[in-house]
Design a protein around this nucleic acid. Structure first.
Length: 713
DNA sequence: TATCCTCGAGTTCC
DNA sequence: CTCGAGGATA
């Protein structure tokens, strides 16, 4: 038998390598899992945070280099792995908002038009600042009387983490300021330069530690070290570009404020320019894009801001973003890979969601193996109204597809390579029966999603409903997350199949021969902790209860509206039980709540009238105590107990603000004028509502009078 | 009826 | 983070 001298040996070497890598992966995975378990059960951790982080990074790095060898049950894909840090929480005095995005030139034109329209500027040219968007992490640094006091990460925008000790090691951040306002919160981006990043990874490699995937991860990992001495050894940099709380204005333009920050000793980005109108904005965008490769730090787009701070103030904010700024993003990195299979998941509302199972690839430093396919139409390539998606190309199992991470997070399929389509590939046959329970899956007229009709008889829906029930905004039971729900759902001795079962768990366990505390992975302490966490939630605020029911169209915001309107579970339940869709006093009351429309109202009524659904609710209510919503007391305000309606444009405050203010003063805010309305506040452009108020003889006041009323109270 | 805005639901990976 | 739908308004 003749073989070429080296090929079998080489193949054998590769195989051995793969085995060694697999073995290393298994060992690291076991180490991480043991540490997670120890942490969960609040025992003394077996390994230090640093060792844990190093193990996790090493495993991630291995997986990144060898996506094909990744263990199917790798702990790196654990959701809800516990945070291991002990940073204090900091509430931002001024929230750190995110920015709206633009990807194409015409979105920049729309941004500019929106602004001119909002301000009534006609064809006048607006001046903007344009600056690179640094790909790091944002930080807010608070100076009081010229001294650095607190530095906090963005967090969720409202609450961040206190990383002051680490921030003090960043040389771009002055410890003291000369000539600054008494109170100054400087905001900007912490980042790591390319040379520093490469040097750091060399040091990591020499020390046998896993390298960081990219400068952004390196910066984030360094800033969130518990030991500031480690952070000190990491060369972090900082660009200032914004501010939070201030005791005195910095300037009257954005550019002026940036220059002032520079004068105070902060680094500001040298590519920041003033641009008059969209043409200059786009020109500067292309200039920055062209120079992107020469910069020694990562950027992911260009930020545009209205320069005049007075105009910024007038433009104000939408719920999560300022109207006066936008991030013009560079195109996301895309990668071609094979789509191996299309799976269908069933959500809590019965929605069938297609998911692409991909041959794992690294996109933007992360291994991606799944991507959302949204719905039937997205796979088909055009929707029911005949709109074309991806030039009308459909997606088939076996196709080569172009994948990117939308907003650098959610993997999506952007394109299909028809030239590489396997000859035997067939158009995807979207199921018309639920893959979990076999019930019919139907698509309502005009709806994009197909839904399983099985209701609570569908195990997938029942399980997802339970997961929602214990989720953060709902009952939020410590130690009973998605994974535990799945475990208990299929448990032979101690099943949780519906919400009420959670609250009978302890009693059932006590009657059992196979006690929870005797099981693998459980002990007396962990079982007792779970039972205690459940008991703590037996008394539950009304809005959490309503939200937990998981009624379609009724999310967190709507639940709060309903809770504060009805005040008690009894009142709410009675109203929902008596209400008839489309008629009667209870219906009128329901849809008159500002923010509740006919669709939501019907959905609520259906939930309380559908027999099985209703029994679930009743059995749950038997087990718990629903606390009344706190009624705003403010009994002595002139509008307490009155029903108000806002109409037209409010110029001095947003509608949400006005509403919150009115409610704080004990008034109810309704959406439309009726005989039960006491007062209408009409801004400019008020139409039918103001007329109706006049017809009904309801008092109408303008915004100034309303402000006087609110201030006086 | 069209348009703007916010909310709900579903998704991935850390 | 994104899409689609619901709700408010012009």
């Amino acid at each position: 038998m003749t073989t070429s001298p080296d090929s079998p040996a080489a193949a054998g070497g590769q195989k051995r390598d793969a085995q060694q890598i697999r073995a290393a992966m298994r060992e690291l995975a076991a180490l991480i899992r043991r540490a997670n378990l120890a942490y969960h059960q609040k025992d003394a951790p077996e390994i230090s945070d640093a060792e844990y982080d190093a193990a996790k990074r090493r495993l991630l790095a291995l997986e990144e280099r060898h996506p094909d060898l990744k263990l199917p049950d790798s702990p790196t894909r654990d959701i809800g792995a516990p945070p291991r840090e002990g940073f204090a929480k900091v509430t931002h005095e001024v929230p750190m908002l995110s920015l709206g995005n633009a990807f194409a030139d015409d979105e920049v034109h729309e941004f500019d038009e929106r602004i001119r329209k909002f301000l009534g500027l006609g064809d006048k040219v607006v001046t903007y600042t344009a600056e690179p968007k640094i790909d790091g992490l944002s930080l807010s640094v608070r100076y009081e009387n010229g001294r650095m006091r607190v530095a906090a990460t963005r967090g969720d925008g409202v609450t961040g983490e206190d990383v002051t000790a680490n921030a003090r090691t960043i040389c771009d951040l002055p410890q003291t300021l000369d000539g600054a306002p008494d109170l100054l919160e400087v905001r900007g981006e912490v980042y790591m330069s390319h040379p520093d990043f490469e040097a750091l990874n060399r040091v990591q490699a020499e020390a046998g530690a896993a390298p960081f995937a990219n400068p952004r991860n390196a910066a984030a990992g360094s800033l969130r070290q518990l030991d500031p001495e480690i952070t000190r050894a990491r060369p972090l940099r900082f660009f200032a570009y914004a501010w939070g709380a201030l005791s005195a204005p910095l300037a009257d333009t954005q550019m002026g404020a940036i220059n002032r920050l520079a004068a105070l000793g902060f680094q500001t980005n040298p590519l920041t320019r003033l641009c008059r109108g969209t043409q200059e904005l786009l020109a500067h965008y292309r200039h920055i894009e062209a120079r992107r490769a020469e910069l020694d730090y990562d950027i992911d787009g260009v930020v545009y801001k209205v320069d005049d701070l007075d105009l910024q103030r007038r433009l104000g904010f939408r719920s999560t973003t300022p109207r006066w700024a936008i991030a013009h993003k560079f195109p996301a990195e895309t990668v071609w890979t094979r789509l191996e299979k299309i799976d269908i998941q069933v959500g809590r509302t019965g929605a069938l969601s297609p998911v692409a199972r991909l041959k794992p690839v690294t996109v933007g430093g992360v291994v991606v193996s799944n991507a959302t396919l949204h719905n039937e139409d997205y796979i088909r390539g055009f929707d029911s109204r005949g709109n074309v998606i991806r030039d009308g190309k459909d997606i088939r199992e076996g196709d080569w597809v172009k994948v990117y991470r939308a907003g650098d997070v959610i993997p999506k399929v952007a394109d299909v390579d028809l030239s590489r389509r396997p000859p035997d590939a067939r158009p995807f046959d979207f199921p018309t029966r639920c893959p979990e329970c076999g019930s019919d899956a139907i698509r309502e007229e005009g709806d994009a999603v197909r839904r399983c009709t099985g209701g609570m008889a569908c195990p997938a829906q029942a399980m997802e409903r339970l997961k929602h029930f214990v989720s953060r905004g709902a009952f939020d039971i410590e130690g009973l997350g998605a994974r535990q729900v799945e475990m208990f759902y299929n448990d032979a001795d101690l099943p949780i199949r519906e919400p009420a079962d959670i609250f009978t768990l302890r009693a059932r366990d006590a009657r059992n021969l196979t006690r929870l505390k005797n099981r693998d992975g459980w002990g007396e302490k962990s079982a007792e902790n779970l039972f205690r966490a459940i008991e703590e939630r037996r008394r539950i605020p009304l809005y959490r209860m309503i939200y937990a029911l998981g009624i379609r169209h009724v999310g967190e915001a709507a639940s709060k509206l309903l809770a504060s309107h009805y005040g008690s579970w009894e009142a709410f339940e009675t109203a929902m039980t008596r209400a008839q869709p489309g008629e009667g006093a209870e219906w009128e009351e329901l849809i008159n709540i500002d923010g509740v429309g006919a669709v939501m109202a019907r959905s609520l009524i259906a939930a309380f009238h559908q027999e099985n659904e209703r029994r679930l609710i009743d059995r749950l209510v038997d087990q718990i105590e629903v606390l009344d919503a706190k009624q705003p007391p403010a009994a002595d305000s002139p509008i307490a107990g009155k029903t108000l309606v806002f109409t037209g444009t409010l110029e001095r405050m947003t509608r949400a603000e006005a509403k919150a203010r009115a409610e704080a003063l004990g008034a109810r805010v309704a959406g439309s004028v009726s005989a039960r309305t006491d007062l209408v506040i009409a801004g400019p452009g008020a139409g039918s509502k103001a007329r109706k108020a006049a017809e009904l003889g309801v008092e109408v006041i303008d915004e100034d009078a309303w402000l006087a009323l609110a201030e006086g109270a």
